[in-house]
Structures are given as C-alpha cells and as structure tokens.
Design a protein around this nucleic acid. Sequence first.
DNA 1: ATAAAATAGTGATTTTTTTCACAAGGTCAA
DNA 2: TTGACCTTGTGAAAAAAATCACTATTTTAT
Lengths: 205, 205
Amino acid sequence: MGRIPPATVKRLCFYLHLLERLKKEGKEYVSSKELAERLDLTDTQVRRDLVYFGKMGKRGMGYEIEKLIKELRKILKIEKPRRAILIGAGNLGTALLASPFFRKRVEIVAAFDADINKVGRRIHGVPVYSDCEISRVVREMGIKIAILTTPPDVAPDIAGILINAGIQGILNFTPASIKSPPGVFIHDVDLTMELEYLSFFVEEE
Amino acid sequence: MGRIPPATVKRLCFYLHLLERLKKEGKEYVSSKELAERLDLTDTQVRRDLVYFGKMGKRGMGYEIEKLIKELRKILKIEKPRRAILIGAGNLGTALLASPFFRKRVEIVAAFDADINKVGRRIHGVPVYSDCEISRVVREMGIKIAILTTPPDVAPDIAGILINAGIQGILNFTPASIKSPPGVFIHDVDLTMELEYLSFFVEEE
DNA sequence: ATAAAATAGTGATTTTTTTCACAAGGTCAA
DNA sequence: TTGACCTTGTGAAAAAAATCACTATTTTAT
C-alpha cells in the first residue's frame, strides 16, 4: 500500500462511520454513488479512495458493507479499539470520558491529573493517576496514543514527558502548539478554530 | 476578494492563533519564514495565503503582527466575538461553556436543553432555555450560528428547527449527519473521528 | 552612501488531487 | 439465455494547490 493522501484518510473515517450507520439500518450493499451523495462527494472520488486499498467492490452491486467496514477498520488500525491515555481530567477530558460514543471507539486505560483530589478516584470508570506517574504507566502498558486536554500552559511540558516515554501519537485539544519530533504524530484539534472556520462562511448579522 | 480555498481558510485560523501568541510574547513583526516554520508549512504558502487579501507585508521586515491580526479577524468575521447559541447542555456542551478560551472567542447568548431540570438555570453564566424556545430566541435575537451538542438521535430534528428559524451555520459535534440546504453551512466535528485519523499514523502495539 | 542581508510578492512550473469518460464486469427480469 | 441496466475500476484530462526561481523593496551594518 503506497502513500495515502491525508485527505483520503480523513474521508475513510467518514466512510466508516456512515457504513456503520447503514449496517445498523440493515443494508448489505452500498454503491459509491450513494456514499458520495450522503457525504457530499463525487462517486469517482469514493471509488478512487477505496481502490488505494485494493478492489473492494462488486460491479453491478456496490460495496459489501460488512466487509468494507472490516477493511476500513484494519486500514485505520482500529480492528480493536486502541488503547490510549487521557491527560487532564478537566471539563473537556471528563466530557470525553462520559461520552459513550467516544468510549466505544477507544479504550481509555488511564487518566492523569495534577489535582490530588482527583487522583486515586475513578471518573466514569477510568482510574485517575497523578501526572508524575505518566511516564511509568506509558512504559509499563506500552501505550502509543495520548489525548491531551490539560491547560495550555502545561501542555508542552506534558507533551515532552509523553514523547520521552514513547508515545507516538498525541491528540492535542489544547491551544498550545506541540513540536513533533520525527516518529511522533501530533494531531491538533482546536474547537475555537472550528468555530472561527465556520464563521468565515456565515454572513454577519 | 475572489474565491478562497477552504484549505486557506483553515490555515488563516492557524495564523491568527499563532499571531496572538506572538503578540503576547511582545513581538511586533513576523516573517512568512517564521510563521511557516512554526506551523509546518512553507514560507511561499504562507505568503500566497495572505496575498489573497491584499499585500499585507513589508519587504525586508515581514508582517506587522497587530495589523495582520486585525485583518484576519475581519476576514474571518470575528472582529467582535460572534453570537451563537448552544443546543444540548450535556457533558460536551457544558465543557464548552466552562472553557475560558472558547468563551473568549464566541459569545454564547443562550443554551437549550430538553431536560426541564436544567431549564431556567444558568450554566457558567449562560441561561438555559427549553428546546421548544429555540425558534423564538433565534428569530428574536437574529442568531446566525448554532453549536450542536445534543444526543445524535435528536440532532436532525433540532437541525431542522434551527435551519427553519434562520440559522446559517451549524457546528455539529454530534455523529449524526445533517443535510445542508443551500445557504446553510454545516461544519462537522467528530471527536472520535479525529482519534481514528490519528490512529492511522501510529503503529499498532 | 553603499553594500549586504532580509523579506514580500509573483509568473512559471511542478505536483497533487479531482473529475471525466468509458470499458469491463456483474445483476436481474422476462 | 438475452438484453437492459447498474456499478466498479481506470487511463486520460482537467483543475487545484504547492513549490520554485526570481524580482522588487526595505532594512541594517559599515
């Protein structure tokens, strides 16, 4: 499998979620045309994206939903929910822990917080450790993915600890920018930025 | 100002946030080279993005940070924080209301929830109304932007109400897909999807 | 005042991504 | 079995985005 454009990877996630909905609705096959319509893409683009990973469709029929879901989960490396840790059990962190959708798709094995009142407790079933235990837990459990929801001022330091301990992917919800050394992938999600992006397309009052 | 590529709009948000950090650090000018390095882009790309909106730099000097921030805020239509409503005062909704960063950048004038125990109260200073008042409030206040953090099963119905009442942009945090009629811009943010995207780039354990 | 260094802006080019157009299979009803 | 109908997969073309290479300014050090 050659180099996959990031835009395609993003779309794979969309396909996967839509396919899971379609499966729940009891459908067995779906065409690139229908996928495209529901996701505001073109059918050619859907087929191009999918053909990166081999010929997965049946001419005349479309794509077998069950099979394609399996395939996409394999490609995205989420056949089993991936194990991850959460750093920062504040409002957003707690909201993620509380979300059944989120919890269904990722196995959060531990949370960390600087607040000693939270340490030792469980939040929505997830044990909370002290920040100083991050390194040990990451190493002992071989965790590769961290979700960062700390205050922004401590984020770079925490990121340093994470990377040092062997974390390879950070989902960064803080507005702080994290420098990524080679081999570590940082994916920034800035919720205010999403709003500002939207704002551009909406007339002023 | 011609048609701006969405990818450029996305990057404008990045520029703006970085510039605000640089301003806080006391800098007055910044070069396309430095912006590029800090955001993992090329300097040419930064200049191309900015030149869509006129010649904003000074040769030999770079870009005047203060001026460029003003300009970007104008372009993104956020000279004043935009007014928006929040639908669904659950975990994520409450986390957004609690975030000082988020609150600084958008004026959330009202929240709505189906739970009558929440209605009439205030959450982090924002009054909570019943879902059935959405239409009235949107019209009376001329709100254009809504943030959707309801359970996914009610999301399409709520979206219908919003669009009917004249909302023009929806920031959709639910995994439900909302069909956008012409003139209404839907921006989906699916936090689980962000994690799955990251997963693709991180080796399995 | 001058030369060297820095930096924005841009035409031309290259690369990447998307779309078009259609052949090659496959389905399905009669 | 036949023929009409779908739908995938794909070479070629088009469009979009990014980069290169260079020019035009401006600053700064001497």
